[in-house]
Nucleic acid binder design. Sequence first.
DNA 1: TCGTTCAGTTAGAGCGCTCCAACTCTAGAC
DNA 2: GTCTAGAGTTGGAGCGCTCTAACTGAACGA
Lengths: 341, 341
Amino acid sequence: MPSTRRNSAPTLEDVAEIAGVSRALVSLVMRDSPRVSIESRRRVTAAAAKLGYRPNLMARNLASRKTMTIGVLLNDLHNPWFAEVTDGIHAAAERHGYQLILASGRRSARLESRAVDTFLASRVDGVIVAGCRLPVARLESVAAEVALVSVGRAFNKSGIGTVTTDDADGARMAVEHLHELGHRRIAHIDGGKGAGAAPRRAGYLRTMRVLGLGDTAQVITGDFTEEAGAHGVERLLRGGVLPTAIFTANDLSAVGAIDVIERGGLVVPDDIAVVGFDNTSLAALNHIGLTTIDQPRREMGAVAATMLIDAINDRDELTAVLMSPSLVVRRTTARLLPNRL
Amino acid sequence: MPSTRRNSAPTLEDVAEIAGVSRALVSLVMRDSPRVSIESRRRVTAAAAKLGYRPNLMARNLASRKTMTIGVLLNDLHNPWFAEVTDGIHAAAERHGYQLILASGRRSARLESRAVDTFLASRVDGVIVAGCRLPVARLESVAAEVALVSVGRAFNKSGIGTVTTDDADGARMAVEHLHELGHRRIAHIDGGKGAGAAPRRAGYLRTMRVLGLGDTAQVITGDFTEEAGAHGVERLLRGGVLPTAIFTANDLSAVGAIDVIERGGLVVPDDIAVVGFDNTSLAALNHIGLTTIDQPRREMGAVAATMLIDAINDRDELTAVLMSPSLVVRRTTARLLPNRL
DNA sequence: TCGTTCAGTTAGAGCGCTCCAACTCTAGAC
DNA sequence: GTCTAGAGTTGGAGCGCTCTAACTGAACGA
């Protein structure tokens, strides 16, 4: 037999016997109840330490009918955006004594659905889904069983809490920034059907119109990937008159766009300026130095967790929270050179 | 009352009553037992569907004394390396019917310790720690309770499974690659005390010696961050004679190094070639195009999970597995120009 | 006819904990 | 001396499930 692991952990009963008290008392000590005498507490603690006792969470949760845990479903572990949102969730949950169990949907709605099933089967007290791809109907049925908050994707269904960035306003900031730098021909490589893509595109189009640039607005279809950014620029290069600036749906696409621009012998930002979206760690790399729209990701996570916990404890309703984006200027945007007017 | 959620989920008993059978039979149906008649199965399934019944995992695990879940402790969600290892773990675990619960240590040994406590309290069947910072003694005590495999950090303690890349050999590949391109003055910006840093540094030094370059070997202390790469190059630039190539402890440091090299008016790879380590998605970005040493991260995760599951089922012992790295040549290395000999 | 077999089903005893009501003391009030 | 209050402790029921052993009844062979 390869294993030398013990096959049965000590239980409350074992501790009670050694300490010479009842099971109930041990349970009280384990839960830090104030109404236990110093002496009893000492003896129980000593017995527990001696045995290496550790309360069985499943038994505890089963008996107490609550788990004090939140299930967090992350759509894609590979995207730093999720790590940052999770940091915020973690911090808020910890403050309220809640634990987290994470699951990765690995970009697949099917896997996301399975992960949510596991959460429900584990009777988590609440669920947070980040960048989730599940159909609204499914989420509604989940929300019927457990408190649910979505981060990064909005629903105008009641019963589902929502924390998103004002994507349209972020797009406005990007376009206005470029406009102030003198740019007039500003193209947008969008995020297709991805979460948040629609309002970013709409914000771009609206702002272009407001600035009187409606007729030079140009949307290239993308999908939030590096390749999408690259292909988008290739298409622009093949097309007629080049834009002097490009606003992409996210940072990753911006990096792909910059790459193709530079390979085409053009210079960023002098020939073409580029603005991304998200302000992921990628954008902050000095080597890239991307001007982008920041989302308060940590804060979004914290707000989502706090709202969820309040709802779990019936202190508050689940609502829709809209966070404010902000412009982060780095080195991929600059004033339009006079000769390019 | 803000909540409209039902406060008590249906149980086995409810289903049994509606279906007109015993609790035990419902249990058998839920676990897909073959010895249930078609008719009973139909009735139970219908009753369960009608009630929206979902087995309570805690009760199930408590009664069956196993959880079929593996706790996965990730040191840092922000590093894509962990996402890729997790993909491999996920795939293997799924194949064997195991579920995963993830936890993030957020680069802190204290939080890692807490996460492991939660795993143990949840009575997971096994634990995988990736890039873990916990002291050996702690891990040994964990291993005494539950099957444990470490990915990315080696232990020569028995009782702990280990899956690592041959870091020293990877370093050798990096140095030999540069050597073949004509480079002789090759510096190394290391990873300090981080996991894997020591063997990479040793491999670098050894290979330099073997190639007869022992006296030009130069190690700059770093810590696996972008800044470390940047500062390392700054120090080199201030120092005497510049190396023609730099081998960094990981990709992130390489990016920091490249940035400072280029700001100094030098060209990569013509003036200074750069080789990273890990082959994270960062290295693969076209805009960066980093030559690096690949670790088979997905496979490492899969191997770790498979080994763990075999150990859980007493089919096999936990062992130490060493994976082979490989060289990935991109655009940050090139043949040394004649004028730089 | 009477076992025997076997597929299908079931009762009941836990799993390790929490929760509740009830119990035992001791100390203080009268 | 009796009563009350409250601190500290306890037994027992029960959370929702699995598991074991035993049961039922139809089918079969002798």
